[in-house]
Amino acid sequence: MTRVPRSALLLGLAGLIPFVWSAATELQPDLADWGARTLGPRFVGPYAGLAYGTVILSFMSGVLWGFATRTSGREAFTGYALSVIPALWAFFFVGGGPTSSAIYLATGFAGLLALDWNFWSHGLAPEWWMRLRIPLTAVVLACLSVTILT
């Protein structure tokens, strides 16, 4: 695998900020209080992570759709069909209480990683794709586990 381009790495890491913030405000009540007063209650605790996770899971469907455009025929159909799974997963399964939503989101992100690998292994994603996606997914899952376990 080749090195992850700096811009992709920096933007990927920046994309983790809401997940890390969500987990931090669940673990630190004083930080949650400050965040709620400063930013509003929907931007702290599980609310922040679950809302953002739903958006990102849907966004990643679009990324996979872009990979599918590199194919044709039956392979394209399969790629497009696989690419909509993360967004549909978020739509149909995320929305109960915080614990069940976090479990479903974590499952969605784990499944997304499998889809990432599938597209990458077929040469549709950049060579460095899994080098970026594995650590990002690990952090997302760790942050969502805070909601699941608290």
Rank of each mutant, 00 (worst) to 15 (best):
residue 101 S to I: 14
residue 17 I to P: 11
residue 114 A to V: 15
residue 120 W to S: 13
residue 64 L to C: 02
residue 73 G to F: 03
residue 66 G to C: 01
residue 11 L to V: 11
residue 83 S to Q: 00
residue 107 T to S: 14
residue 38 T to A: 09
residue 112 L to A: 03
residue 107 T to W: 12
residue 64 L to N: 01
residue 26 E to V: 15
residue 42 R to N: 12
residue 137 T to V: 00
residue 92 F to P: 05
residue 66 G to V: 02
residue 145 S to C: 07
residue 23 A to H: 02
residue 53 G to S: 04
residue 59 F to I: 07
residue 80 Y to P: 08
residue 146 V to D: 01
residue 46 P to N: 15
residue 62 G to M: 03
residue 24 A to Y: 04
residue 101 S to K: 06
residue 100 S to D: 15
residue 55 V to M: 15
residue 145 S to N: 08
residue 94 V to E: 03
residue 1 M to V: 13
residue 25 T to Q: 09
residue 126 P to C: 01
residue 68 A to S: 08
residue 130 M to Y: 08
residue 103 I to T: 10
residue 142 A to L: 12
residue 18 P to M: 06
residue 63 V to F: 10
residue 131 R to E: 09
residue 147 T to Q: 14
residue 19 F to C: 02
residue 119 F to R: 03
residue 147 T to D: 12
residue 85 I to C: 00
residue 74 R to W: 14
residue 144 L to W: 10
residue 14 A to K: 06
residue 39 L to Y: 11
residue 80 Y to V: 13
residue 13 L to Q: 06
residue 43 F to P: 00
residue 118 N to L: 13
residue 133 R to C: 08
residue 57 L to W: 00
residue 46 P to K: 15
residue 99 T to Q: 13
residue 129 W to Q: 06
residue 15 G to C: 05
residue 26 E to G: 10
residue 7 S to F: 14
residue 146 V to H: 05
residue 120 W to K: 10
residue 102 A to W: 07
residue 4 V to L: 02
residue 90 A to D: 05
residue 63 V to A: 15
residue 80 Y to G: 09
residue 15 G to L: 04
residue 65 W to K: 10
residue 14 A to F: 11
residue 73 G to Q: 02
residue 39 L to S: 06
residue 134 I to S: 09
residue 41 P to V: 09
residue 58 S to M: 09
residue 106 A to T: 00
residue 36 A to V: 00
residue 112 L to Q: 05
residue 94 V to S: 03
residue 113 L to Q: 06
residue 62 G to A: 02
residue 84 V to R: 00
residue 116 D to A: 02
residue 116 D to C: 04
residue 33 D to Y: 09
residue 14 A to S: 12
residue 65 W to Y: 12
residue 125 A to D: 07
residue 135 P to V: 01
residue 16 L to C: 08
residue 127 E to T: 14
residue 97 G to T: 11
residue 106 A to E: 05
residue 110 A to M: 11
residue 64 L to S: 02
residue 113 L to M: 08
residue 132 L to S: 06
residue 66 G to Q: 01
residue 25 T to W: 04
residue 21 W to R: 08
residue 58 S to H: 07
residue 53 G to D: 04
residue 90 A to T: 02
residue 55 V to H: 12
residue 115 L to E: 06
residue 23 A to Q: 01
residue 95 G to Q: 07
residue 92 F to C: 13
residue 84 V to H: 00
residue 69 T to D: 13
residue 31 L to Q: 02
residue 122 H to K: 13
residue 1 M to T: 13
residue 134 I to T: 06
residue 114 A to M: 11
residue 86 P to W: 01
residue 7 S to N: 14
residue 100 S to F: 13
residue 87 A to H: 04
residue 58 S to T: 13
residue 94 V to N: 04
residue 48 A to W: 11
residue 40 G to A: 08
residue 101 S to P: 07
residue 49 G to N: 06
residue 84 V to F: 03
residue 54 T to V: 09
residue 19 F to I: 01
residue 65 W to F: 14
residue 143 C to E: 06
residue 126 P to L: 02
residue 58 S to L: 09
residue 22 S to F: 04
residue 36 A to Q: 07
residue 78 T to W: 09
residue 88 L to H: 03
residue 88 L to Y: 05
residue 38 T to M: 10
residue 107 T to L: 15
residue 100 S to R: 15
residue 12 G to C: 07
residue 13 L to D: 07
